[in-house]
């Protein structure tokens, strides 16, 4: 097992799995901190992945593909805002509907636009290539992990401290935290919590869109029906576990990403695919259980003032 971890090609594959989860979870963190119970990250991701392929196919540029992915995610965020914030729909109901909407719409549009069933790949889809970081190559584990990845991975890494600073020091970050904790305080100060939450949802959509772009135009160069495959749900769990704090999110995303890529690896070692497919979900459950035990232990000790 250890041998495997030090296998450079394994190490190099970890970021491919970390990036979509991390980006989606950072988006989810915006919602979580703003008091929007958004469990539609799966749908946001999927729409982002699809929009990335559309943008990249028609423009020939992966960057425009990423932009399209962000717009696709923002569009989903606006749908969420319309039905949850403006019309007052229950966030769980709206999330379930959006997840179904994304699944249906991407498959429908895949056939409507590309006339493809199930999957679509074409040389015209321009993907992100690896970015080489000079001077990293000789490091044993860190070298392959942090060198030669897609630009979206580096973006995701930079996004963590930025998000942390945003929540601590930025005007909107402060208001987002207030909207999540005591929105009445915002109302009394003359700021509409609804508007603050709208911004959070839009930001969430953009980040999830980029996560989707990593799936479709950085990891591979194609779109497959339902290609988010539960990663949005894992991001939801990561957000719930960390209560939307960026640095712990980074850690959790790396844990999940490693398990994800590990399961991909051991498949090659002869374990039935069904068992390796299960691993991310079982790992998620295990992390959930461990953390809740740990938290329970802390409250039982009372935590002296």
């Amino acid at each position: 097992m250890l041998e495997l971890l030090f296998d450079p090609s394994f190490a190099a594959s970890v970021p491919r799995f970390v990036t979509p989860i991390l980006l989606a979870a950072l988006g989810g963190a915006l919602c979580e901190r703003a008091g929007v119970f958004n469990i539609a990250l799966e749908g946001f991701l999927l729409m982002g992945a699809f929009a990335a392929v559309v943008g990249s196919y028609f423009s020939g540029s992966p960057w425009l593909g990423a932009l399209a992915a962000m717009l696709g995610g923002v569009a989903m965020g606006l749908v969420f805002a319309e039905f949850n914030l403006r019309r007052g729909g229950d966030p769980i109901v709206v999330s379930i509907a959006i997840n179904i909407l994304a699944a249906g719409l991407t498959t429908y549009l895949l056939r409507a636009i590309f006339d493809a069933m199930g999957a679509f790949s074409d040389p015209a889809i321009a993907g992100f290539g690896p970015v080489s970081i000079p001077g990293l190559g000789w490091l044993p584990v860190l070298g392959p992990v942090f060198g030669g990845q897609s630009p979206l991975f580096y973006l995701a890494l930079v996004a963590v401290p930025v998000a942390s600073l945003f929540f601590a020091r930025h005007r909107l970050g402060l208001r987002i935290r207030a909207a999540g904790e005591n929105p009445a305080g915002l109302v009394a100060g003359g700021v509409s919590p609804r508007r603050v939450r709208l911004y959070a949802l839009m930001g969430c959509g953009a980040l999830c869109g980029l996560g989707g772009a990593q799936l479709s135009i950085a990891n591979v160069n194609l779109f497959v029906e339902n290609m988010s495959a539960g990663r949005g749900w894992i991001a939801v769990v990561a957000v719930l576990l960390t209560r939307g704090r960026p640095w712990p999110l980074l850690l959790i995303a790396f844990i999940f990403g490693t398990v994800d890529s590990l399961s991909f690896r051991v498949q090659g070692l002869g374990m039935p695919q069904q068992f390796t497919d299960m691993m991310p979900y079982l790992a998620t459950l295990a992390v959930l259980i461990t953390l809740s035990w740990w938290r329970r232990g802390r409250t039982a000790n009372g935590g002296a003032p």
């Binding site: 402060l174 935290r177 207030a178 904790e181 005591n182 009445a184 305080g185 109302v187 009394a188 100060g189």
Partner: peptide, 8 residues
């Protein structure tokens, strides 16, 4: 009822 943010 005070309109404060406890965590801040």
């Amino acid at each position: 009822h005070f309109m404060l943010q406890e965590s801040m």
